Simulated scan of single mutants.
Amino acid sequence: MNAQQWLERTTRDLPAGVAGRVERETRAHLQDAGWPEDADVRAVLGDPEATNEGLRRLYLTAKELEEVTTGGSLRTGWNLSEWLAGLVFPAILLWEALRSGALSSGLGVAVLLAGVALTWDLHPARRRQWRLMLMLLVAGWLYGLPGVWEYTGWPMVYAPLFSTLIVVYAAHSHLRRDARLRRTLQAEEGRA
């Protein structure tokens, strides 16, 4: 298997910027090793399928990137979900907190507005993902957790531990996906 065949199998389903980066680095590695590109490169580069699996753990696939960027090639315009998470839902919670004096709704507003401020300078795709995750966590905490807890009948003393475990799991999953998205966006923006 020559270098071009190896690269085609390795970069299958990856975005163009990621594939370009992998190709540049692979060709540089082969040149440093003094390995001819028309020779069988598996001895130097390894199994292309295993490398593709490793790259998929580091980067989003082209299809995942398209889904995340919602509506085309790295769309940066107006997005309903971002406005819902960053403005509409906090406004509803603020109104609820002012009307009923619910401390939990006020805390939810504070978390969401802090999230808006902290994500302000992120790439639009990453910003949307962070704001939606925060909105879902706050909504789950305010509206879902009490109902689930009432249904289970478990003692209320375990609720903070349960909610902490959910937040830790969600944050861990989101951080891993965000790292893949960040690396993919860097590779895509560098392909110009």
Rank of each mutant, 00 (worst) to 15 (best):
V111S: 07
A125Y: 00
V18G: 04
A39S: 08
G77C: 11
L132F: 11
H29R: 15
L94H: 06
E49G: 11
T119Q: 02
L103H: 08
G71C: 04
A125K: 03
V44Q: 14
W78Y: 11
Q129T: 09
E37F: 01
E82H: 05
N79K: 14
L80C: 07
V41H: 03
G46R: 12
W130P: 00
R128L: 07
R126I: 13
V44K: 11
N79S: 09
S105R: 14
T76W: 05
N79M: 10
D47S: 08
L80N: 06
L65P: 00
G144R: 05
G54T: 06
W130E: 05
G101M: 13
Y59S: 00
P36M: 04
G101C: 12
L118T: 05
L55A: 10
L84V: 15
L113Y: 02
R75W: 05
L136F: 15
D40E: 06
W120Q: 05
F89M: 13
P15S: 03
A139D: 09
G34N: 04
A114Y: 12
V44W: 07
E96L: 14
V18E: 03
D40P: 02
Y59W: 10
E49T: 15
G140T: 11
S81Q: 13
R27G: 01
A39M: 11
L137Y: 09
T70Q: 14
H123W: 02
P124M: 01
L30M: 02
R56G: 11
L94W: 10
G115T: 10
V111Y: 11
W120I: 01
G108V: 03
S73Y: 03
P124Y: 03
L60V: 10
L30S: 05
L122Y: 03
R126C: 05
A62Q: 08
G17F: 02
A125D: 01
V22Y: 02
S105N: 12
A50G: 11
S81L: 13
E25D: 15
T70R: 13
D47V: 10
P90S: 03
R57N: 09
E25N: 14
E66W: 00
L112A: 02
G115V: 03
L65G: 01
L45H: 07
T76A: 11
L94C: 14
L112M: 12
A50V: 15
V111C: 03
R24E: 15
V41S: 00
R12N: 08
D38F: 01
A117M: 10
G46L: 10
W78S: 04
A110L: 15
W95T: 15
Q31N: 08
T119F: 02
G140Q: 09
P48T: 13
L118P: 01
L58P: 00
Y59N: 06
N52F: 12
S73G: 00
L84K: 11
A91L: 10
H29P: 06
L107K: 00
T26D: 13
L80R: 09
E53I: 07
G34Y: 12
G20P: 05
A97F: 08
A28E: 15
A33W: 00
L103V: 12
